[in-house]
């Protein structure tokens, strides 16, 4: 690790100010950032911890009945506090990493990082959630811009994520055997406006919606409804743990399993 300064502001405004410094970085749970600093792959001049900002922690209900999750809320807190209102989201959070990771890692950190194999992006895109930052609201469809890239500007903080609650939803995750991130994970949500299907882990361009399946499932919400569909292997990730063809298969199988579980 290189030397850095550490700040722990109490308000969003203070945090934004602190992040104005050159090469300062926000710190959520540090589950991604700290390991990369230890390996000397990241060298922020200062870390601005967000976990001391009370308004960014915890789960509540918004005026529009949406489930609001503070940007610095840990996975463990979401697993516990969202279980009643949004069990699919709580189950997803409760299956990220291990207990140590879940008690540190935050939803804001996960979304800002946008690891192509992370779980939360599937839930956010699949739910059609809104990402609220310190200066605007970003629809999920506009937020994820490919591997490790998002619509966030430098220094912009995810303050809250608002999830509309679907009628039925489920997340089906196939774990990569080593990291246990998603080799392919599919979040399916059925709302009055139709069905959304978001896929993480599979594509070279990060989390994506499977439009064909959404159309078929909007007409008939059953695993059989997509039996005849397939996604092309082209553009799927190829690595030690899966070929493009394998991942394309998982997209379909995991979608079917999510539908059955929803």
């Amino acid at each position: 690790m290189y030397e850095f300064d550490f700040e722990k502001p109490a308000t969003v405004a203070e945090a934004v100010a602190a992040l104005g410094r050159e090469d300062a970085m926000a710190l959520g749970g540090g589950q991604t950032l700290i390991p990369s600093m230890k390996q000397r792959l990241a060298a922020p001049s200062a870390l601005v911890s967000l976990t001391g900002i009370a308004e960014m922690r915890g789960v509540c209900t918004g005026d529009d009945a949406a489930l609001c999750v503070g940007g610095a809320t840990t996975h463990a807190a979401v697993a516990a506090e969202a279980a009643g209102r949004y069990p699919a989201l709580a189950a997803l959070a409760g299956n990220i990493g291990d207990p140590a990771v879940r008690n540190r890692g935050t939803i804001g950190g996960s979304l800002a990082n946008n690891d192509p194999a992370a779980d939360y992006p599937a839930a956010v895109l699949g739910s059609g959630a809104t990402i609220v930052t310190n200066n605007r609201s970003i629809a999920a469809d506009d937020f994820f811009e490919g591997l490790f890239t998002t619509a966030l500007e430098p220094g912009e903080i995810i303050v809250e994520v608002r999830f509309p609650i679907p009628e039925r939803a489920a997340y089906a995750k196939f774990q990569q055997p080593a990291s246990r991130f998603a080799l392919t994970g599919v979040f399916v949500a059925k709302t009055a406006n139709g069905v959304r299907v978001a896929v993480t882990g599979a594509s070279e361009s990060g989390v994506f919606r499977w439009g064909e399946a959404e159309a078929a499932l909007s007409a008939d919400f059953s695993a059989d409804a997509i039996a005849g569909l397939s996604v092309p292997a082209d553009g799927m990730v190829s690595d030690l743990h899966g070929t493009p063809a394998y991942r394309a298969n998982l997209v379909k199988v995991m979608t079917q399993r999510a539908v059955s579980a929803a």
Partner: peptide, 24 residues
């Protein structure tokens, strides 16, 4: 039998260089 594999690419770079890719 089930999980572990040390893998190098054709240039001799270790692909399974951490627990992210080497499954214990």
């Amino acid at each position: 039998a089930m999980l572990e594999a040390a893998a190098y690419d054709e240039n001799g770079q270790l692909l399974s260089g951490s627990y992210m890719d080497y499954a214990m």
